[in-house]
Design a protein around this nucleic acid. Sequence first.
DNA 1: GCTATGAGTCTCATGACGAGACTTATCGGG
DNA 2: CCCGATAAGTCTCGTCATGAGACTCATAGC
Lengths: 170, 170
Amino acid sequence: MALGNGYEQQGCFLARALEVVGERWTLLILRDCFYGVRHFSDLLAHLDISRGVLTERLDALVAAGVLERRPKGRAVEYVLTDAGRALWPSIYALSKWGEQHLSGNHPPRVFSHADCGTDLDDAGRCPTCGTVPDVAELVVRLADGPHGSRRSDPVAVALSTPHRMLTPIP
Amino acid sequence: MALGNGYEQQGCFLARALEVVGERWTLLILRDCFYGVRHFSDLLAHLDISRGVLTERLDALVAAGVLERRPKGRAVEYVLTDAGRALWPSIYALSKWGEQHLSGNHPPRVFSHADCGTDLDDAGRCPTCGTVPDVAELVVRLADGPHGSRRSDPVAVALSTPHRMLTPIP
DNA sequence: GCTATGAGTCTCATGACGAGACTTATCGGG
DNA sequence: CCCGATAAGTCTCGTCATGAGACTCATAGC
């Protein structure tokens, strides 16, 4: 946060959180990590983001302990840490807000509890089980409805059918 | 979102939401609105933000239906709409994440249910009543603990003692 | 060994932001 | 009524952030 004025004078943990996840693209990167995306090139293709910015954002998330960087030969995998996973409620809440208060020419993504198949409620609870399932126990699918322009990158293709959250996308 | 590359190609409501609230300072502005801040000059002083950026952000939030602009003589009040209020769970979740996973030299803010005085749990529920109270039914206070540098702007002063959410700050 | 691939690094032009000065309209007191 | 103070902006210019695209380096597989 190098611009002339940062959030340091804000004595509040929302500001602390935004210092980590508030930069352009960061929450969308994390969204993809929740879907199981692990590779730089997949993020690049799915987000249509510049290489320099993606590198910076990933480095910052690793430095903040939100993602872990795991070299695998020439490839690198970026995986959510426990702290990273704990961001799910925030991402879910924002997505839900967007669905309910904004419009888009694309169907929403629906998250269901893998064990019982019930769709989550607005607060991320399974109404059948009465619990808030961990993100690893969710399946995401596209709701029925008119589709906008279809993306053809590997991530979009993998997510066009129901997909277990956090499961690596090949 | 005028930079060369925006979120339009992201067919997802997280992206739609971030188009509205994802810009620098926006969520902190909304945080203050939840505290009851309504005046440009109070936001300016509390956020230490440039006048031009604050104007732009407020205009964008009004255009998006998150805030309502109410002229009152020479003053203007910016008030959360219902859609704006619906952002509380997102802001609360992010703040909680910040508290639990990051460090700061300031105490966290604690939110309690005004009716029964119980502090909310991590999901924003009142454990005593078993419900998720509306933000208007919460009282915010500073937790005990060492204070960083104290701000002296009117908002910080008003929030140094327990304060009902959404209540106008004079 | 060679080619392809993955993850970056780098440059330059455009846009975002901050700092501070200035403007306009309203309010309240003398 | 006039004047000074105040609130909410508007504007300028220098610094930082981002995007687009080219290039580099290391690894993998044939």
